[in-house]
Write a protein that binds this DNA or RNA. Structure first.
Lengths: 343, 343
DNA sequence: GTCCTCGGGTGAAACGTTCTACCTATAGCA
DNA sequence: TGCTATAGGTAGAACGTTTCACCCGAGGAC
């Protein structure tokens, strides 16, 4: 295993008495080479444990077979289940096609040094999947009309032609609103994530649906859950909502974690779920099933979304498609945290 | 942004009327070049948004400035908080030195095609951090005495010289045992992760400590928590433990998730924590603080471990060190899930 | 016998850097 | 004057592939 010089294509060629081209063609499964020669080459390759130099290959072929996944700059972001589920989907799909996945975090260095474009210019990666989702990430508009392969995951920019794939947040909001309204709730508090366009879309559609059902401005309040959509943020937002309207009988959280924070607030104030207050989340993370009571939520198939996003990026590489603007369906999951409104 | 040919060092050289070497030296901050020329070149670089081709650079310099992080083949592994915390630490440290992080999963393809070594041979990465931790990953012993830069993270092989860095699981076990014994517990159930050497070390040291305190074989039982150390596994193991010894007053879980599963089992059987049964975990994941009651645990600084592991790998690159066998300290975190044994 | 085709293979340019060895002009010094 | 040192810069080999254009020989068609 320890050797001074690594084996190169030249060594293989010499040993087999063929040209470099022949070895290269064999390695790339080109049918020009006869069975006999092919086997001789392959045997030699195996014998030496030869592996093509990735840089030489990338230089000559102008591709890297690597994709970059960009996540936002949050504390310990890779420990976040939301991003983790998506990344898992991306990885698995990429792996199927022998693509590698490179990590990137959209921190200030990444933005200021324009790493987001340099990584493509330098050919380090063939394309990017951008999960980092903030309404502030406006620099991405630079990709409009660019030749680079690029896809936003569960995130979009209004009035932009950037490729994206995500779940249908507006339908999500409608299903959630209909569920709570159907249970008779007339005083609802919304905990919104306001730093993404999808979060805003969810909030606005949810409120619009409630208004359409006859709830007035005071009957459906919203509060910001904070920029990291955390349990703590949900806890705090719930406090504020109850302070403004003590008659609230349902809390709609923009994601499950904030929903769990809301449950915690409600429990610590000796209210019963769902008898006194119903709570809903969004995403259906595994934890949602294990809360007491189980959390009613709208399932967003994050893993599948990751897979699909990666699939579309690969399709862009292949030229099978040239744009992508796609939303995936969502599904209401009723558990025990929602029930008829207290009368 | 859209151009036919990307700018190369040649374009810059031509525009500035200097040689390729000069441009290259400027880009690598070599002091040979005068301030004047340097500025001229840098201006041109900036103007064209020039970025060196990563493959050309890698080919010439024989490095890639990329490290690979290998995690085990679990379902949706990147959504796992344990690995997520470590990966976050690794990423942040790598980022400080402008290294990139590539993901790998130790699935059957990875093992059978010997990707673990090919990725190094092909120069795709300069080194590897192996978080994938199973006693079955014996193929890694192939790295003993190899020239490749390689480090096991929170994982070790007995009787092996492989580099590693992790926390001190034996000390962890001693602190946990002393805490429970000190509270008067004399019937203890251990939920162990048995598919890692660290998990086995924890179990064995914990039991040894209890025996040393006078507990006999029946008084300290252990049960396997399953290969993914999950909440469900902890739940099921707890059931078995109580079936064997209904007198148990304390459960020691090999990680927090299994501990949370244990708590769930205990709650659903109308026992009180800690009045009837004390429960302890290991790791101190953020969730441990939010359980009811809060989970007593041994804090393993996973993020810091990731950072440290990456730091050591970089030190191996630089040649500052040539081996690494290091354990990090752990700390008992007492919350409300443990209390005096019921008499 | 000549021309075509085609299977199987080769030669060498191209990809875009890094880096060593070398060059030149000028200054300093005895 | 001749010698050395040095600052500033250059030429070109090397890195290890891919791939296009080309070659050769054999078989078939006419």
């Amino acid at each position: 295993m320890a050797q001074g010089q690594r084996t190169t294509i030249k060594d293989i060629a010499k040993e087999c008495g063929v040209s470099l081209s022949t070895v290269s063609l064999v390695l790339n499964n080109n049918s020009r080479i006869s069975e006999k020669t092919r086997n001789r080459v392959l045997a030699s390759v195996k014998k030496h444990g030869y592996q093509p130099n990735i840089h030489a290959r990338g230089l000559a072929s102008q591709t890297s077979e690597v994709i970059s996944v960009v996540v936002p700059h949050l504390n310990h972001v890779f420990a976040d289940i939301y991003f983790g589920e998506i990344v898992s989907g991306i990885y698995d799909r990429a792996c199927d096609d022998n693509y590698k996945v490179l990590l990137d975090v959209a921190n200030s260095k990444f933005v200021e040094s324009q790493e987001y474009i340099n990584i493509l210019k330098s050919r380090r990666v063939d394309g990017m999947l951008f999960i980092a989702s903030s309404i502030e990430d406006d620099y991405l508009r630079a990709f409009e009309g660019s030749p680079y392969k690029f896809l936003l995951v569960n995130h979009f920019f209004p009035n932009s032609s950037l490729n994206f794939l995500g779940v249908d947040y507006r339908d999500s909001a409608r299903q959630a609103a209909d569920h709570l309204l159907g249970l008779g709730h007339r005083n609802i508090g919304v905990i919104a994530g306001t730093n993404t366009h999808t979060g805003l879309a969810f909030r606005d559609e949810f409120i619009a649906r409630c208004r359409a059902a006859g709830l007035d401005e005071k009957a459906v309040l919203w509060e910001d859950g904070g920029r990291d959509w955390s349990q703590e943020g949900g806890f705090e937002a719930t406090r504020k909502l109850f302070a403004t309207n003590p008659a609230i009988t349902a809390i709609m959280a923009g994601n499950d974690r904030m929903g769990i924070g809301a449950m915690r607030y409600i429990h610590t104030h000796n209210l019963k779920i769902p008898e006194d207050v119903s709570v809903m989340g969004v995403d259906d993370i595994p934890q949602a099933k294990f809360t007491t009571p189980g959390l009613t939520t709208i399932r967003h198939e994050l893993y599948q979304m990751g897979r699909a996003a990666c699939e579309r990026l690969l399709a862009l590489f292949r030229g099978d498609i040239s744009t992508c603007h796609e939303v995936l369906p969502v599904k209401l999951i009723v558990r025990e945290s929602t029930g008829p409104a207290k009368t």
